[in-house]
């Protein structure tokens, strides 16, 4: 579904990603873990098409096509979804109308008729229930005046309504208390299907107690330095990133010396 090859990304002339390789197949859940400043958010933003980031080298294939050649809206319409770490507030833009516009833009891309209002309302109610969200939030302006947790839940609501093929969750766990985290995780688990994939980007492994990853990757200083199974997340929890960083440095030193 997603193949990243030797991805280099800069922002404002500073290189953040220094050659990332990653393959995600349908049906898989991947976790990308790393300390602050390692390039996690850069990776998700580049995949979603944020024009503030410049790809300086490398290639990304999504469902066999050149992802980097697509404008952000085409990526979205092709089923890519980014749950933002810091969702933007949109004063005056009603949550419900915004979601309906998004649903219909995606449907149009897939040559489907706009969704009838009552079908949309039914779908929305169903997903609000799934995310155990306060239904008054959809009548308000998008994210405006929402608490940190409400913003994250609203991202999950959008994801549930838009039913992406590839969902990127950028630090979705931050700002959530433990009950909210469980609810969100349950919601994400219910959206898991054999034909879609989820990439969770996180600093801490606590979310991975509830959404079990098939693969865990450690991103440090713009490179994936270790990949493994779920046990890698537990190892990180006990050793911290410093432990991993030390291992990698030792390996790199041994290679350079040998």
């Amino acid at each position: 579904m997603l193949e990243i090859r030797n991805l280099h990304v800069a922002i404002g002339g500073t290189e953040i990603l220094k050659g990332v390789d990653l393959t995600v197949n349908a049906g898989e859940v991947h976790a990308i873990m790393g300390p602050n400043g390692s390039g996690k958010s850069t990776l998700t933003n580049v995949l979603a098409g944020n024009p503030a980031y410049q790809v300086t080298a490398g290639e990304v294939r999504y469902q066999g096509a050149d992802l980097l050649a697509m404008p952000p809206e085409i990526r979205a319409r092709e089923g890519l979804f980014l749950a933002f770490q810091y969702p933007v507030e949109l004063p005056g833009v009603r949550n419900r109308e915004f979601l309906r516009t998004a649903v219909n833009a995606i449907r149009q891309h897939r040559s489907l008729d706009p969704m009838e209002l009552k079908d949309f309302n039914k779908l929305l109610q169903e997903k609000i229930k799934l995310m155990k969200m306060d239904s008054s939030l959809v009548k308000r302006s998008v994210n405006e005046g929402f608490s940190g947790g409400e913003k994250k839940r609203n991202e999950m609501l959008q994801m549930a309504v838009l039913e992406p093929r590839l969902a990127l969750l950028d630090e979705t766990d931050s700002g959530l208390d433990i009950d909210a985290l469980k609810t969100v995780a349950e919601g994400v688990n219910q959206l898991k299907r054999p034909d879609n994939a989820i990439v969770i980007v996180t600093h801490y492994q606590r979310m991975l107690n509830y959404i079990i990853p098939d693969f865990v990757h450690v991103l440090i200083d713009g490179r994936i330095v270790r990949s493994g199974g779920r046990e890698l997340a537990l190892e990180l929890e006990s050793q911290g990133y410093e432990g991993i960083r030390g291992d990698v440095a030792a390996t790199a030193g041994a290679e350079a010396g040998g």
């Binding site: 944020n50 809206e73 990526r75 969702p87 933007v88 949109l90 004063p91 833009v93 915004f98 995606i106």
Partner: peptide
């Protein structure tokens, strides 16, 4: 960008934001 990441093209996104601005 946030709106485009949800499938709205650039013109739609700008239109939505401008109308949001006056909505208040």
């Amino acid at each position: 960008f946030y709106l485009r990441s949800r499938g709205l093209d650039e013109d739609m996104a700008r239109g939505v934001l401008v109308r949001g601005f006056v909505q208040e």
